[in-house]
């Protein structure tokens, strides 16, 4: 008798639930499939539209620096260089600042203050990049000029804006990992006669390192692809100059600026080729970041 009851309990609502489950899973899988399909289709479309460029220039497209739409000569190096240098500058500035801020917020700041500051930092992450670009034009560019930069706009200015933009990511993620450092580990270090700073350096930061590296890669992915704010302050000049105060150009910026006015098919194709390259780079960087954060999550 008991088995019969159990069977009924198990079967009747169970099978209906399972049918619902299956449908739900199918719908979700369908959506996920569409997203994946869209990404593949995008890559394929980009490859097709840029085929002419790859045929004409081959991979030398990526390491020559003549960009002359009138003569139909295209080399993407200045844009690759501009994207790499501005993003690298941004990391150089934002990583120490962001990690420092996270340490301050977790280890030193009183709880109330830390909460208020975290709220402000999270708001900062929500500011549209065009607004950051405006801020760059109205505040940063004049300030750079006042500080002796010949143009105001340029590689360093772009790096600074990007740094400002990724700072919230680095701070938030680093703080989250620092909060997971087990208390007994910190106590062990304190009990050896360590100062607060020595505990941060000897225990907390090493423990949090994989998470911080993940945050850095995530931010790098963001900085590499950032278009609006960079376009507004980088100077938009396809050149490679040693000075960081000189104007430059980035991959995303040149696509945004020239795509609408591309006069020839060759020009259009070259811009799409830059787009494809940018997509590949950001996918690799973001993939690396996700992988690292995922591994961290599993290790805990």
């Amino acid at each position: 008798m008991t088995t019969a009851v159990l069977d009924r309990v198990r079967k009747v609502p169970g099978s209906r639930e399972r049918a619902g489950d299956r449908l739900f899973r199918l719908v979700i899988a369908g959506f996920a499939g569409i997203i994946l399909l869209a990404a593949v289709a995008l890559a394929w479309q980009l490859a097709r539209e840029s085929a002419e460029t790859w045929r004409t220039f081959g991979l030398t497209f990526l390491w020559t620096s003549d960009w002359d739409p009138v003569a139909d000569v295209f080399g993407a190096l200045p844009f690759l260089y501009g994207t790499a240098v501005s993003s690298f500058l941004a990391l150089l500035i934002a990583v120490p600042l962001g990690v420092g801020a996270a340490v301050f917020l977790t280890e030193l700041a009183p709880k109330r203050l830390a909460e208020v500051l975290m709220f402000a930092i999270e708001l900062l992450a929500a500011v549209p990049s065009v607004i950051l670009g405006l801020m760059g034009i109205f505040l940063l560019v004049p300030a750079m000029r006042a500080a002796g930069s010949p143009y105001g706009v340029g590689m360093l200015t772009a790096g600074l804006i990007l740094a400002f933009m990724i700072l919230p990511y680095i701070t938030t993620i680093t703080r989250e990992v620092l909060l997971t450092v087990p208390r007994p580990l910190k106590e062990a270090m304190y009990a050896l006669g360590a100062t607060r700073w020595e505990v941060v350096r000897g225990v907390s930061l090493p423990y949090a390192r994989p998470g911080i590296v993940g945050a850095v890669f995530l931010s790098l992915g963001r900085a590499l692809g950032e278009t609006m704010a960079v376009t507004m302050v980088i100077g938009n000049t396809p050149q490679i100059k040693a000075s960081l105060l000189e104007p430059g150009y980035s991959m995303a910026a040149v696509i945004a600026n020239e795509l609408a006015e591309a006069a020839s098919d060759a020009h259009l194709s070259a811009l799409v080729a830059i787009g494809l390259t940018l997509m590949a780079v950001t996918i690799v960087v973001n993939g690396a970041a996700r992988l690292m954060l995922y591994r961290l999550g599993r290790a805990k």
Partner: peptide, 20 residues
């Protein structure tokens, strides 16, 4: 900080530093 260099402590759960 100075006191703790003279008075060491061992805790209930072993807590070696995992990164060392």
């Amino acid at each position: 900080v100075l006191l703790r260099r003279e008075v060491g402590m061992v805790f209930q759960r072993p807590n070696p530093f995992p990164t060392m």
